[in-house]
Computed example of a mutant assay.
Amino acid sequence: MTEQVLASWNEGPVRQAILDYVERATTPGAAFVEPADRIATFDNDGTLWVEQPLPPQFDFVFRTWEREVKADPSLAARQPYQALLQRDQAFFEGLATQEPEAVASLLEAFARSWAGTTPEEFDAQVREWTRTVRDPRFGVPYVELVYRPMLELFDLLRGCGFRVFVCSGGGRDFMRAFAEETWGILKENVIGSAAGYTYTDGRIVRSRELLGGLDLGPGKPEHIFAHTGRLPAFAGGNADVDVEMLRSAAFALLVRHDDDQREYAYTKGAEASLATAEQLGWTVVSMKRDWTTLF
């Protein structure tokens, strides 16, 4: 491996643990992983890009819902529209920590808002958002707040025969709109909570149905297996909703947000994952200590 591998990672036990695992997995021996089984899966929000003060997808959908409430004021009595109008902090915290009930109400509204649209129409809306909307703290488009060290990890894994997938509780089709240019990952390698589709009059259009349930907690390994026919050899996450995916992998990497200068420092929504990491010996990344640069 060249010295350019994981160039934004400081020398230390975390970087070495990753390199050692990849070496073992690709070298004949007790820990060898057959090429077909070299599946690597990663959460998105908080693992691949900034998720505070709210995951970026919420910025995208909230802008649409504000317009919808103006057009139909009766929506103001329903969640998540009500929380948006009242600036309900408790509801927003539930979204930030990806509490299933809060996320379910969001995804149901999401399905209603875009039911009947084609993939091309939805992609165009997301791409317009990525071009024109900026993160309020950093002042750049959200797609520029992807963690460079994780992209370097993708490169390392792909170079060693792993197929890399993103597996998020967020919207699958939202992520697919920018996956190829932002992560270098094909659309078909993006797994997430998703609406169903119907084929009508020669067109694929979104339905109101949620396909296969939420991609959170146990839903993550369930969706991964349904999508790939395998469970991951390598998995990366940052929160309690990633625990089941991390437990299903041979090598688990947990990103800890402890850099309040370059990003944010918090453990809310990650308490159980940090405790499990200590119990099971997962590799925990300190953003402050292990990464020389973030974005």
Rank of each mutant, 00 (worst) to 15 (best):
L186Y: 12
F92I: 07
R247M: 08
F174Y: 13
N44Q: 11
W49E: 00
P136C: 05
A275C: 11
V243I: 15
G46R: 00
V33N: 04
E271K: 08
G170L: 01
Q16W: 08
A83F: 04
E222R: 13
D240F: 02
Q89D: 13
L6P: 03
E278R: 12
F92P: 07
E128Y: 11
L84I: 11
F42I: 06
F225T: 11
V22Q: 00
N44F: 10
H223E: 05
R158D: 03
E278P: 09
Y266L: 14
G29E: 07
S8Q: 06
D240Q: 03
L153W: 00
T276D: 12
R203L: 13
S193K: 05
G169D: 01
L106K: 09
D242P: 07
T64S: 13
L254P: 06
A17N: 06
G237L: 02
L107V: 14
P56H: 07
T132N: 09
G237K: 00
V285R: 00
L214F: 05
A194S: 11
V103T: 05
V140Q: 06
T182H: 07
E23S: 13
A270T: 02
A115I: 05
G281S: 05
L280P: 08
F234T: 01
A233Q: 03
R131T: 10
A277Q: 03
L254W: 02
R127C: 10
Q4G: 13
Q261L: 14
A90H: 11
G46A: 01
D155G: 11
D59V: 11
Q279I: 11
E120H: 09
E180H: 10
W114G: 04
T132M: 09
G46P: 02
P100A: 13
V22P: 01
S113L: 10
I39G: 00
F138N: 03
R176T: 03
L151F: 10
R134N: 13
V146Q: 02
R148W: 06
L84S: 01
V243K: 03
E66D: 14
F178L: 08
E152T: 07
E144D: 12
Y147W: 08
R206I: 11
L211E: 13
C160N: 15
Q4W: 14
P73A: 05
Q261N: 13
E222L: 12
E34L: 15
E11G: 05
M175C: 10
P136T: 02
A30V: 15
K288W: 12
A30K: 15
P232G: 06
T283R: 09
P136W: 06
F91D: 00
D88W: 08
F225P: 09
L145G: 01
G139V: 02
N238Q: 04
E120V: 08
A252T: 01
M150N: 10
A71E: 12
